[in-house]
Computed example of a mutant assay.
Amino acid sequence: MLNSVCGMRLSTYGVGLGWIGVIFSFLAVILTSIGLGNADELARQIVEENHNTKLTVDEVRTILVIILSIYLALQVINLLASGMLIVGTLKERHLYLLPWLFNNGVTLIFGIITQIGMWVQLSSVSFTSALPSILVSLVTITLSWYLYYGIYSLYKQIQRTSDLQRPLIPPQSSARNYEGLPNNQ
């Protein structure tokens, strides 16, 4: 497990990454909402710019609304997961980090699959011309995995300390005291 990420303590890293996620997701929600509100104009412009397509404005608008709606839903989920990352880090509640871990784990898996698909497509190109793309994708995947592993390490650290502070099953003598019964019953 990591003790720090990029020289930052895990809790500082978790809060910082959470705020970055909240800010970018919030901006993406606003921009996507504007795009959905102007779907008619966007569809008309797409059809006008691409004269060789056989799609009508209504078909392009439908496709655009579907894609933007899915993207909007994903960004709202990311916004909530990033917010929970902040709260979970500050309150030291490891379960609040799970939505972020799940959301970004799925994103990381799809990113790896996409990169492998890109590498397969690049196999028809000469190696020297494909090398920059392959190196950039390897660096991106490695950095994404490192950042994800940092939050996973934070999750395990908070989980470890919270298990020590709040055991799931209280000791038998204190359980009787909670019920208001004397210890000898």
Score class of each variant (00 low, 15 high):
51 H>L: 03
51 H>T: 10
51 H>A: 03
51 H>M: 02
52 N>V: 03
52 N>L: 00
52 N>Q: 09
53 T>E: 00
53 T>H: 00
53 T>Y: 00
54 K>H: 07
54 K>Y: 03
55 L>A: 07
56 T>S: 11
57 V>Y: 07
57 V>E: 13
57 V>A: 11
57 V>K: 13
58 D>P: 01
58 D>Y: 07
58 D>W: 01
58 D>H: 05
58 D>E: 14
59 E>I: 11
59 E>G: 02
60 V>P: 02
60 V>M: 09
60 V>D: 05
60 V>F: 08
60 V>K: 05
60 V>A: 03
61 R>H: 12
61 R>I: 13
61 R>Q: 15
61 R>V: 13
61 R>M: 14
62 T>Y: 07
62 T>Q: 10
62 T>R: 04
63 I>W: 01
63 I>R: 02
63 I>H: 01
63 I>C: 00
63 I>V: 06
64 L>M: 06
64 L>C: 01
64 L>T: 15
65 V>P: 02
65 V>Y: 08
65 V>E: 11
65 V>T: 10
66 I>Y: 02
66 I>L: 02
66 I>T: 01
67 I>M: 03
67 I>C: 04
67 I>F: 02
67 I>V: 11
68 L>G: 06
68 L>M: 13
69 S>G: 15
69 S>F: 04
69 S>P: 04
70 I>H: 03
70 I>R: 04
70 I>F: 04
70 I>Q: 05
71 Y>A: 15
71 Y>Q: 14
72 L>K: 04
72 L>H: 08
72 L>R: 03
73 A>P: 09
73 A>H: 06
73 A>L: 14
74 L>I: 15
74 L>D: 11
75 Q>V: 06
76 V>I: 14
76 V>H: 03
77 I>Y: 05
77 I>K: 01
77 I>H: 01
78 N>C: 12
79 L>S: 10
79 L>T: 09
80 L>T: 12
80 L>S: 06
80 L>G: 12
81 A>T: 08
81 A>L: 03
81 A>R: 03
81 A>I: 03
82 S>F: 05
82 S>N: 03
82 S>M: 04
82 S>Q: 02
83 G>Y: 08
83 G>N: 07
83 G>Q: 07
83 G>M: 05
83 G>T: 14
83 G>F: 08
83 G>H: 10
84 M>F: 15
84 M>T: 13
84 M>W: 12
84 M>H: 09
84 M>Y: 10
85 L>P: 07
85 L>V: 12
86 I>R: 07
86 I>G: 06
87 V>F: 09
87 V>C: 04
88 G>S: 09
88 G>Y: 06
89 T>K: 08
89 T>C: 07
89 T>G: 08
89 T>A: 11
90 L>M: 12
92 E>Q: 15
92 E>W: 11
92 E>N: 13
93 R>M: 13
93 R>P: 04
93 R>T: 13
93 R>Q: 14
93 R>N: 15
93 R>I: 15
93 R>S: 13
94 H>P: 00
94 H>N: 02
94 H>M: 00
95 L>E: 12
95 L>Y: 10
95 L>A: 07
95 L>K: 09
96 Y>P: 13
96 Y>A: 15
97 L>D: 04
97 L>V: 02
98 L>M: 13
98 L>R: 08
98 L>V: 14
98 L>C: 00
98 L>T: 15
99 P>M: 10
99 P>D: 09
99 P>K: 07
